[in-house]
Design a binder for these strands. Structure first.
Length: 808
RNA sequence: GCCCGGGUGGCGGAAUUGGUAGACGCGACGGACUUAAAAUCCGUUAUUCGAAAGGAUGUGGGGGUUCGAGUCCCCCCCCGGGCACCA
């Protein structure tokens, strides 16, 4: 047949679904709810292939679950605060609000053209004052519960964006957004206390629902739990002491020096005490001037300076020198270490360079290893360790030495995490203002809840120098203290946009609520989200922050759930020309053009069919013709099925069985998110129908209906417009009301199969036999047809309905 | 370096519990229809030897377990992703 008029059909059905409120969900219902969520997009203005993939997968689930009888909630919204709108404003003068809202309306149209069902009544946008009012409300609640705090800290500063960044947003020393250099700066900044949840965030990963292994492992790595011992070192001839953390207390006898990070809080005292204070001061100055990346680079040669001071090893009272070196990081552990060059690569490199003594305290079982050319970090037995000689390294010796230290009150077991508190201040305009006021009398106080939202002020110039753009508005800046009425000055930073996205899925459930961010009861009945679907690029940032947010809100009694997302599905990225599609690389493939040339249904089907959805793929539109061809053939076949004369026909039993097998298989694939094979099942079934139609012109009424209903129904989640159209055309009914088809379990297997006949494990012949054939019958058949006598062989292995193997 | 994935035809990719490797689609080739082309339909398409019948090889490489391995075990190579001076 000719190409069907997909443009007309798709527009028509989208209108019908909208008018019938097909996507509308009553959230007050308490039974059979299914919260199906796709990550809300940043409104860049244009839908890209990643969105198409995400929202197609989401829609397959929505429509499938609806057909199973679930009350499905599938909302959509906008992650609409963020830098691009502000940069565009600087460049073009268009106000970020207008810029953003124009783009939202364009993107909303594109999403609708894809045909995915969203309950638009629940739409939220992060930049909307009815939304960010509640972001501010939640911020204040966190502040009141000491989960948000302001502190001086060395922070990541992007020299180009002129804003601070969270650790999670620094990639190899560069800004995640603009790739510019990130430096360290000491600033008074806002943090969320995510680190108090380290252990729970880690443990939660074990009993969460179905999450991809790689995402769990990325979060695990990021949290970075490590167990060891923390103990105290005293600086000889002074009152000074400091803690060090180690995972290898078993190597304590091998400590030949100690190292402090240049940023260590004791540094001023060290300077006054040390005979080498000049050298130390200049070393600190140099370290400060280096970029974060230079400092962290593993390839860099280690540097340091001897303080001339000594510390005492608590296990043997030996004095060892104290050094300052920037290979010890202030942010991890205690910012100081015991250095055991014999058994640690970094300490070894340092000791070699500065000619510091290296002692071997662990030897392998064969007593062969020596450490003259490299440190020994594997398991072995202790030597040169006094009473501990002969103990096994790592666990056994560590426990003994820990016991000694804790008995003497010198040290204790300690768990450290790599995860640090979440820095959320941003020196930018287009974000949610931090609703705190610096009162001249009371200090830092939250804006009164009645005065929320703290609105973003109008300003003329969005460029930020060293200060936040909001500081340019006097009207915004100067205010009165909500507690005492004295003069106050507002905070001028805005929040990281990941704060907005840490709770949007809660607001969807109650987006019109004027009194609270959401109704606790509704949240409790809908969370955790049954299925969350989004890109793997959010594995750490958004997914970890949201998990923290929900736990924090639980602890301040705003909701009663532990985890936001029960099942998570991460779709792979779509690349083009070997790399990620991006405007700056000019390799963006625009989905719009395919709406026009092939239609949304063909594009959806192709994007599902091209690869397993969790895999990354290289975009290649060669195959979209194939899915288009399939849809044409499908329509043609359904029309021909409808035209068949009514009369029971011999071949139709096979067709009925094939339909049963297809229902079984498509259902199984949908449940496992294997959409590519689900589509191929439909193609196979379509081919079966073609075959039947070429050989027959009649069918029983029952089979005709079964084939027609089943095929349209199975295609519906994948390509909903065309299946709705065909079903309506030939049956005058609405397919969305049709329940997901059931299969007849007794009619799944074929009456006969090809028995594989092997001799000594090698396939030699095949023979068609009845399903259920016994070993004896199979042996007889082999003898009759191929003259293979079971008695000539030592052993016969028979697997029912599969193979027979003669051995010997 | 560490932690996750993964490696199957010309290409994208299929293969319940170990049981006919290559489903489905793309591309290619041959044929039908057509004045012609497109579209459509039918057929062929892992490699290799062979005219054919038929044989041999084959899931990154090497070893192993098994009647039988893409699938399980050990070692190695390569690719993608994440983390990375984390003590």
């Amino acid at each position: 047949m000719d190409n069907y008029d997909f443009k007309k059909i798709e527009e028509n059905w989208q209108l019908i679904w909208e008018n019938n409120k097909l996507a509308s969900c009553d959230v007050t219902q308490s039974e059979n709810n299914f919260y199906n969520l796709c990550m809300y997009p940043y409104p860049s203005g244009d839908l890209h292939m990643g969105h198409i993939r995400n929202y197609t997968i989401g829609d397959v689930i929505t429509r499938y679950k609806k057909k199973l009888g679930f009350n499905v909630l599938s909302p959509m919204g906008w992650d609409s605060f963020g830098l691009p709108a502000e940069n565009a404003a600087i460049k073009t003068g268009i106000h970020p609000k207008k810029f953003t809202e124009d783009r939202i309306s364009n993107m909303r149209d594109q999403i609708k053209r894809l045909g995915s069902l969203y309950d638009w009544d629940k739409e939220v946008a992060a930049h909307d004052k009815n939304y960010y009012k509640w972001t501010q409300y939640l911020f204040i609640k966190l502040f009141e519960n000491k989960l948000a705090y302001k502190e001086d800290a060395p922070v990541n500063w992007c020299t180009s964006c002129k804003t601070v960044l969270a650790n999670e947003q620094v990639i190899e020393g560069n800004c995640e957004r603009c790739d510019s250099e990130v430096t360290k700066k000491n600033l008074n900044q806002w943090f969320f206390k995510i680190s108090s949840y380290s252990e729970e965030l880690l443990q939660g990963l074990h009993d969460i629902g179905d999450w991809p292994e790689n995402v769990k492992s990325m979060q695990e790595n990021w949290i970075g739990k490590s167990s060891g011992v923390q103990f105290n070192l005293k600086i000889n001839g002074s009152e000074l002491d400091f803690d060090v953390f180690t995972t290898r207390p078993d190597t304590l006898f091998g400590m030949t020096f100690a190292v402090m990070s240049p940023e260590h809080k004791l540094m001023n005292k060290i300077l006054s005490l040390s005979p080498n204070s000049k050298e130390i001061q200049s070393y600190i100055d140099v370290a400060k001037s280096k970029s974060e990346f230079e400092r962290m680079s593993i390839t860099k040669e280690k540097t340091g300076v001897d303080t001339g001071l000594k510390v005492t090893n608590p296990i043997n009272n030996k004095s060892v020198p104290l050094w300052i070196a920037d290979y010890v990081l202030i942010n991890y552990g205690t910012g100081a270490i015991m250095a055991v060059p014999g058994h640690d690569e970094r300490d070894y490199e340092f000791a070699k360079k500065y000619n510091i003594e290296i002692i071997q305290v662990i030897i392998d079982k064969d007593q062969k290893i020596d450490i003259s050319s490299k440190p020994f970090i594997e398991k072995g037995v202790l030597i040169n360790s006094g009473d501990y000689d002969g103990l096994n390294s790592h666990d056994e010796a560590s426990n003994s030495i820990l016991n000694y230290l804790s008995k003497k009150d010198l040290g204790e077991r300690k768990v450290t995490y790599r995860l640090r508190d979440w820095l959320i201040s941003r020196q930018r305009y287009w974000g949610c203002p931090i609703p705190l006021i610096n009162c001249t009398k009371c200090g830092l106080v939250p804006e009164s809840l009645d005065n929320l939202p703290v609105l973003l002020p109008e300003i003329d110039d969005y460029k930020n120098s060293e200060d936040s753009p909001l500081a340019k508005s006097e009207d915004f800046l100067n205010t009165k203290c909500p507690d005492c009425g004295s003069d106050g000055i507002r905070e001028t930073d805005t929040m990281d946009t990941f704060v907005d996205s840490s709770w949007y899925f809660l607001r969807y459930l109650d987006s019109q609520n004027q009194n609270f961010p959401f109704d606790k009861n509704i949240i409790n009945s809908w969370l955790p989200i049954d299925q969350y679907i989004g890109g793997v690029e959010h594995a750490i940032l958004h997914l970890l922050y949201s998990r923290f947010f929900v736990k924090a809100l639980r602890d301040i009694n705003l909701l009663d759930v532990d985890e936001p997302f029960h099942n998570l599905f991460s779709q792979g990225m779509i690349n083009f020309g070997g790399t990620k599609m991006s405007k700056s690389k000019g390799n963006v493939v625009d989905p719009e053009s395919y709406f026009a040339t092939h239609g949304a249904d063909a594009l959806r089907l192709y994007i599902l069919f091209m690869a397993p959805p969790s895999d990354g793929v290289e975009w290649n539109d060669g195959g979209i013709e194939g899915t288009k061809r399939f849809l044409n053939k499908f329509w043609d076949n359904m029309a021909r099925v409808s035209d068949l004369q009514i009369q029971k026909t011999i071949g139709e039993d096979d067709l009925v069985r094939s339909m049963n097998q297809t229902i079984f298989s498509v259902t199984r694939h949908l449940e496992k998110f294997e959409f590519n094979t689900g589509v191929s099942d439909l193609m196979k079934a379509n081919n079966e129908i073609s075959k039947y139609l070429n050989e027959n012109s009649t069918v029983s009424e029952e089979t005709k209906d079964f084939v027609f209903n089943t095929m349209c129904n199975l295609l519906y989640p994948f390509s909903p417009h065309i299946s709705s159209e065909i079903y309506n055309l030939f049956s005058k009914k609405d397919i969305s009301a049709l329940k997901w088809p059931e299969f007849d379990e007794s009619n799944l297997s074929n009456p006969s199969y090809e028995l594989v006949i092997q001799l000594n494990g090698k396939k030699k012949f095949t023979k068609v036999v009845n399903t259920g054939t016994s070993q004896q019958e199979a042996e007889e058949a082999c003898e009759v047809t191929f003259n293979i006598k079971a008695s000539d062989y030592k052993k016969v292995i028979f697997v029912k309905d599969k193979i027979i193997n003669f051995i010997g």
